[in-house]
């Protein structure tokens, strides 16, 4: 094993109304990898992230972060939900949304102060959105909204980042900007888990991959396991992606 284990998932099973969505998932993610979760629609990719983060209650299974139960390690974990999961007409500004990333470390009742504002402005700058800090969030484009969400996670200063389809509906410039930030995070020793749809870009963006279709098909380094065999097993059709070199 090259690195410490960042995330360990044991026997995770999730069902919606008797229908299993995730079946007995075991998953070990080493520290400092950029991992894609790939699989067809309905494979349970988002559900996996949500179950790990405790947003959805699993029927069985446990999650540990750096060797301790997730409940005790929340401060180490940041989450970027799907852009479409919130109402962007909510009366607030970009900076205000990013500041929400500091609420977790503040805890109950305490309000964000100068320190939190400074950190939030830095996060906005990192994603190239400083000029839009006072924009009403409904006036942002899809790509800008995604950047704001990313900044909100960055300001949490976590060790592990979970992102649900951060490239959905964003233009090429934003996609490149986001992936560069993710690669920087990996370089800084952070672990990043991304629900990803575009198979073509997997080898270019990620160094680790998990194939998921209700059950876990395979997980490991992209170089070793991102092949037609696993793709076929996951998507159920003969897959030919010109990535096997």
């Amino acid at each position: 094993m090259r690195n410490k284990i960042a995330i360990q998932v044991d026997d995770l099973t999730v069902a919606y109304n008797y229908k299993p969505v995730l079946w007995d998932i075991d998953l070990v993610v080493p520290e400092a990898v950029l991992m894609a979760i790939v699989g067809p629609n309905g494979a349970g990719k988002s559900t996996l992230i949500k179950a790990i983060l405790g947003i959805i209650d699993p029927i069985a299974g446990s999650v540990s972060i750096y060797g301790k139960p997730y409940d005790k390690q929340r401060q180490l974990v940041a989450y970027v939900p799907q852009k479409g999961s919130v109402d962007w007409d909510f009366p607030t500004t970009a900076l205000d949304v990013v500041m929400m990333g500091t609420y977790g470390s503040l805890g109950w009742i305490k309000r964000p102060g100068k320190k939190e504002k400074k950190a939030s402005l830095e996060a906005l700058e990192k994603v190239g959105m400083l000029a839009f800090k006072n924009r009403q969030i409904s006036q942002l484009s899809g790509g800008q909204q995604q950047r704001v969400f990313l900044a909100r996670a960055l300001v949490q200063n976590a060790s592990i980042y979970f992102m649900d389809e951060p490239f959905q509906g964003v233009d090429a410039t934003t996609e490149i900007a986001i992936i560069n930030i993710l690669k920087e995070l990996r370089k800084a020793g952070k672990t990043v888990v991304v629900v990803h749809h575009d198979l073509q870009t997997v080898p270019e963006y990620f160094d680790w991959v998990t194939f998921l279709n209700v059950k876990k098909i395979a997980t490991g380094p992209v170089k070793e396991i991102f092949n037609d065999d696993n793709l076929t097993k996951t998507y159920g059709i003969n897959y030919k992606v010109a990535v096997n070199k």
Binding site: R74, V77, F90
Partner: peptide, 21 residues
């Protein structure tokens, strides 16, 4: 007292949960 908590829950309940609230 709970202004911050009310606001974040109204905007993004799932995310609020992951922050430990």
């Amino acid at each position: 007292l709970f202004w911050k908590e009310f606001k974040i829950l109204l905007f993004d309940a799932d995310y609020t949960k992951t922050l430990g609230f």
